[in-house]
C-alpha cells in the first residue's frame, strides 16, 4: 500500500515536471510558485533557504550571462530571465517537497536494479553529508578568527579532495561487503 502511494506521488511529480517545463507564461509560473509556497506553511523559510542556496550560483551565472549577451545584441532579456528563474525555483521547491514526501526506494520497488542503485547512492550521500558537516564543524572549531576568502577556498578545496578520497574508500568497502554477503555470486 505504501509502495503504491509512493509510486503515485513519484508519477505525479514526474508529470508536474513535464507540465511545468511546458509553461512559458511568467504570470502562470508566478501563480504556481505562490501555490507551492503556500503549501509549505511554517516550513517555508527553511525550504526557501535550501532551494535558493542550491540554485543560486548556477541561476545567477546563467541569468547574468544571458542578460549581458542580450543587451549586447540589443534583444529583450527580462522576460526570459524571469521565466527561467521562476521555473527553476518552482521545480526545485516541488522536488524538495517530493524528496521529503516520497520514499523513493519504495516507489522504485518495481525495478530491483534501479532500487539497488538508489539505495547505494542514498547510503553514500548520507555518509558524505555527515562527513561534510563534520568538516564544517572542524573548520569552524579550528579557526576562531574567520579566515579570508582565499583561506576558506583552500580549506574547501582540501575538504573536497578528502570527500572524494572517502567516497572512493566507501565504494571499495561496500564492494567488499557485498562480495562477502554473496551479492556477486550469481553475476558472473
Amino acid at each position: 500500500m505504501n509502495a503504491k502511494r509512493d509510486r503515485c506521488l513519484l508519477l505525479a511529480w514526474l508529470a508536474a515536471v513535464v507540465v511545468i517545463s511546458q509553461l512559458h507564461d511568467p504570470t502562470l509560473l508566478g501563480v504556481l510558485l505562490a501555490l507551492i509556497l503556500a503549501q509549505y506553511g511554517r516550513g517555508l523559510p527553511g525550504a526557501l533557504k535550501r532551494v535558493l542556496v542550491a540554485i543560486a550560483l548556477v541561476n545567477i551565472t546563467v541569468s547574468l550571462g544571458f542578460a549581458i549577451h542580450a543587451v549586447l545584441d540589443e534583444r529583450p532579456w527580462l522576460e526570459f530571465v524571469l521565466r527561467l528563474n521562476l521555473r527553476v525555483v518552482v521545480l526545485a521547491l516541488l522536488t524538495l517537497w517530493a524528496s521529503q514526501g516520497i520514499r523513493l526506494e519504495r516507489a522504485l520497488d518495481f525495478s530491483p536494479g534501479l532500487q539497488f542503485l538508489l539505495v547505494l547512492a542514498q547510503g553514500q550521500i548520507r555518509a558524505l553529508q555527515r562527513l561534510a558537516a563534520d568538516f564544517r564543524f572542524g573548520f569552524t572549531s579550528r579557526n576562531p578568527v574567520p579566515l579570508a576568502l582565499g583561506g576558506r577556498m583552500r580549506g574547501a578545496g582540501r575538504q573536497a579532495a578528502a570527500l572524494m578520497e572517502k567516497a572512493e574508500l566507501h565504494a571499495e568497502a561496500l564492494t567488499q561487503g557485498m562480495q562477502s554477503r554473496g551479492f556477486f555470486d550469481d553475476r558472473d
Binding site: E105, R106, D109, Q115, F116, L118, V119, L120, G123, A127, H170, A173, L174, Q176, G177, M178, S180, R181, F183
Partner: peptide, 10 residues
C-alpha cells in the same frame, strides 16, 4: 564499519 555491508532498501 557496518555501512559497508548494508545495501538493501529496508
Amino acid at each position: 564499519h557496518p555501512e559497508a555491508m548494508l545495501f538493501n532498501p529496508s
